[in-house]
Write a protein that binds this DNA or RNA. Structure first.
Ligand code: ATP
Length: 775
DNA sequence: GTAGCCAAACATCGG
DNA sequence: GTTTGGCTAC
């Protein structure tokens, strides 16, 4: 039936049932984009009789794709077989993989290079061009190359206007040749090469145009020129493009995204239907008002009249901490209070501008023994041991990959040092081989002329033997079997698992990777593609019921009942590297806006008066963004005042200790619950080992403390008598009626356990929970 | 050829 | 404060 349309408001319904064509949905935060996209797909299939094979849906993360797939399956009560759904990168990778026969420079087994690999290639290009990598920093050059690719600029049309750009052009040219020789593409190539393929082969383009008659795109504001071109090509024939986006949430300008693609789209297609989604289903009025007040300061916005039916709400809490350490402690103690108020750890997220900030927060979680999940920072797939194993597998899959070859040829050490490698490189080059071809030749062709003797020869010969055996084995076997074979024959375990905690940890990571390879239906090629294209947020749900620590960027598209945004200081948010340029500053503001609008019920904003950079501590100024939130919506001392206070304090700090503590207790009163002032948290020696073994990468494997474990170790018992007693009937604003099962004094508050009729047993803080006794 | 040490660089955001 | 890579001593 059509009852799925009943779940939509009228704006959403207009969007979902719009006549196919060019459609632009401008969707405010929390306005149900996901719902509109999924229902649109179902609508196309059911009402318009469109086959899922003819639908392409592009999402921002793999996780979003999975979730939408799941949702559609529920709505249809059947698996949408044939539906193409994925990120730009994964969709392009699939197309390219299929079309390699039509590409001049690539074979089917091409691999995807990540940033570390890319840097190696840039360094090699510099060497080949006789350029000094001290004078021309590889990361800068790589950035230039990436920008060009995002703008669909190939080396031959790259216009150099000055010395540096001429260097970039040359390196770019050489870089592309090296990638091709390695049968490898970088992330940007996946997009650019797909567009180039379509440009060069109109017949192939036509095939895909006919296949993808209906195209839907999420997060349209964060598409770059190349992605935009891709969409325009694909949609050129049937003109059915359903783009959903919000200019106010554009936060990827720095990697080529341009929210003006929204305007471009409207200008290119004046007949496009534009539909606004303005009702926010997520946040309370107060949160939405605060967010609107923040974003209002940006120029050239499409006006949207956002509203919510969730009247009122909890005020935004603004906290000032003495330093970043105390900021972490404040977050922790606030979380503890919220846990007593019925929230669970998984309801909360702690956000920050840069990954380094996560460290202090993480340590606070570890000290307090609270469950958390860290997104990003040192990503799993970027860890040394994981990259090593992937390099082995990649080399077997694509022996042309010399970056992987160089990475593992002597890891574990097997007597192939710099000197030998140099000779190998020269010998390989003379024969037009890649290094892996050379060692295989050495091992399998006894006739071959070569420059090696003695130990070096033996080492290379052995390695070549192993490699060619793996390549043979890879043909018929599962990824898992190949994985095990490589581990065993390379002696990698002995090398990495050296008995230290760290070694053990690294081995565990390898076993975790092994788990991914377990899927029997996965080919080596698919496995490698999957691990290359996973994003940080993709595995988010794997740790149930722990608080999420993540950057504001990573938070885009997610929602949490409680959101903490930390580090609201000038230089941090807005970031110092974005404060010069008005456009970049506007993006910082959007980032803050994105953060606030992730919250359903509560927002906590914090800043530290002193923060440690590079090991030295400096005084800070509260973020200008704090002053944009109307006072009426906040609790905590007024941002304007504190700005001056902080400045004054910064200058007078060394003379005397100002009335910090009194000030502090004033601003913390808002939380009611106990909050210890962190005078000097012990920097114990066991801290670092704790961190490594306890949580950094464990969460996906090791169960974290159970949600009901006692986070709230009693601190200082204040002699207060209990208001509630066992058996008493009570009522709570949200949870309804229930019976008290236990009541005790914890910290300086009374902790009440109540069995509610509807929601089961909850533990609440009496001062917080507004429990009423009923007859 | 390799392990281990120390200095220099370092850290915005991510697929 | 941490990581990287270049250098030295075995
Ligand atoms: N018509 C509706 N009625 C009730 N709830 C809805 C409706 N539409 C969406 N929602 C709810 O609103 C919340 C936000 O939806 P969604 O995550 O799709 O927002 P979004 O538009 O993607 O937001 P953002 O742009 O901020 O990421 C979800 O919890 C969803 O269930």
């Amino acid at each position: 039936m059509t009852n799925y349309l009943d779940e939509l408001n009228s704006q959403q319904k207009t969007a979902v049932t719009a006549k196919p064509g060019r459609i632009l949905i401008l969707a405010g935060p929390g306005s149900g984009k996901t719902r509109v996209l999924t229902h649109r797909i179902v609508y196309l299939m059911r009402e318009m009789n469109v086959s899922p094979w003819n639908i392409l849906a592009v999402t921002f993360t793999n996780k979003a794709a999975r979730e939408m797939n799941h949702r559609i399956e529920q709505l249809l009560d059947a698996h949408p077989r044939g539906l193409t759904m994925g990120t730009f990168h994964s969709v392009c990778a699939r197309i390219l993989r299929r079309e390699t026969d039509n590409m001049r420079h690539y074979q089917r087994d091409f691999v995807i290079f990540d940033t570390a690999d890319q840097l190696q290639v840039v360094k090699r290009a510099l060497k080949e061009l006789n350029l000094d990598d001290k004078k021309f920093p590889p990361p800068k050059l790589l950035n230039g190359i990436s920008n060009a690719k995002n703008e669909l600029i190939t080396p031959d049309i790259y216009a150099s206007t000055n010395y540096i750009s001429e260097i970039t052009r040359r390196v770019y040219e050489q870089y592309q040749l090296t990638l091709q020789a390695n049968n490898a593409m970088d992330f940007d190539d996946l997009l650019m090469n797909t567009v180039l393929l379509f440009k060069e082969h109109p017949d192939i383009l036509q095939t895909y145009q006919q296949k993808y008659q209906h195209i839907l795109v999420d997060e349209f504001q964060d598409t770059n020129t190349t992605q935009y071109a891709l969409l325009q090509h694909l949609a050129a024939q049937h003109n059915n493009l359903f783009a959903v986006g919000d200019g106010d949430q554009s936060v990827y300008r720095w990697r080529g995204a341009d929210f003006r693609n929204i305007q471009r789209f409207q200008e290119a297609h004046p007949d496009a239907q534009v539909i606004l989604l303005e009702q926010n289903y997520r946040s309370t009025q107060i949160i939405l008002d605060a967010a609107k007040a923040v974003i209002q300061h940006n120029q050239n916005r499409t006006h949207k009249n956002l509203f919510t039916e969730r009247q009122g709400g909890e005020p935004i809490v603004i906290d000032e901490a003495y330093n970043d350490l105390e900021e972490g402690d404040i977050v922790i103690s606030t979380i503890k209070s919220l846990l007593l108020n019925g929230y669970s750890p998984g309801d909360m997220a702690v956000m920050y501008r840069t990954n380094v900030q996560s460290r202090v927060l993480e340590e606070a979680f570890i000290r307090a023994n609270m469950p958390y999940r860290l997104i990003g920072a040192t990503q799993f797939y970027k860890r040394r041991e994981v990259k090593d194993i992937i390099a082995y597998l990649r080399l077997v899959h694509n022996p042309a990959d010399s970056v992987s070859f160089n990475r593992i040829v002597n890891v574990p050490t097997r007597g192939i040092g710099a000197k030998t490698l140099q000779t190998l490189q020269a010998w390989a080059a003379a024969n037009q081989w890649q290094p892996a071809d050379a060692v295989i030749e050495l091992a399998t062709n006894p006739e071959v002329q070569h420059p090696f003797r003695g130990r070096a020869f033996n080492a290379l010969h052995n390695f070549g033997n192993m490699l060619s055996a793996w390549i043979t084995a890879s043909a018929g076997s599962h990824v898992g079997d190949l994985f095990d074979l490589i581990l065993e024959q390379s002696n990698y375990r002995e090398y990495i698992d050296d008995g230290t905690d760290e070694g053990c940890d690294r081995w565990d990571n390898i076993m975790e990777l092994r788990g991914v390879a377990n899927d029997p239906n996965l080919t080596l090629s698919e496995f490698l593609e999957q691990v290359a294209l996973v994003s940080e947020t993709d595995n988010l749900e794997e740790v149930p019921n722990s608080t999420t620590l993540l950057t504001l960027h990573a938070a885009k598209g997610l929602e949490y009942p409680v959101v903490f945004i930390t580090g609201l200081e000038e230089g941090m948010l807005p970031h110092s590297r974005s404060m010069q340029d008005a456009e970049e500053l506007a993006e910082e503001r959007r980032l803050f806006y994105v953060g606030i609008t992730r919250a359903k019920d509560r927002v906590y904003l914090s800043h530290a008066f002193r923060r440690t950079f590079y090991g030295t501590t400096e005084a800070t100024t509260p973020s200008r963004f704090l002053m944009d939130i109307p006072e009426a919506l906040t609790i905590g001392s007024k941002p304007k005042q504190r700005r001056q206070e902080s400045k004054a304090r910064a200058s007078s700090w060394h003379q005397s200790t100002p009335s910090w503590s009194s000030n502090r207790s004033q601003s913390s009163s808002s939380l009611g619950a106990s909050r210890r002032s962190s005078s000097s948290p012990a920097h114990g020696g066991n801290q670092s080992s704790d961190k490594k073994s306890a949580s950094r990468y464990e969460p996906t494997r090791k169960p974290l403390p159970k949600p009901n474990s006692p986070y709230d170790e009693p601190k200082r018992a204040t002699p207060t008598s209990c208001q509630f007693s066992t058996g008493q009937k009570v009522e709570h604003a949200t949870f309804g009626k229930g019976i008290v099962i236990e009541s005790k004094i914890t910290g300086n508050d009374e902790e009440v356990s109540v069995a509610f009729n509807k929601v089961g047993i909850k533990r609440l803080a009496a001062s917080f929970a507004k429990l009423a006794v009923v007859e």
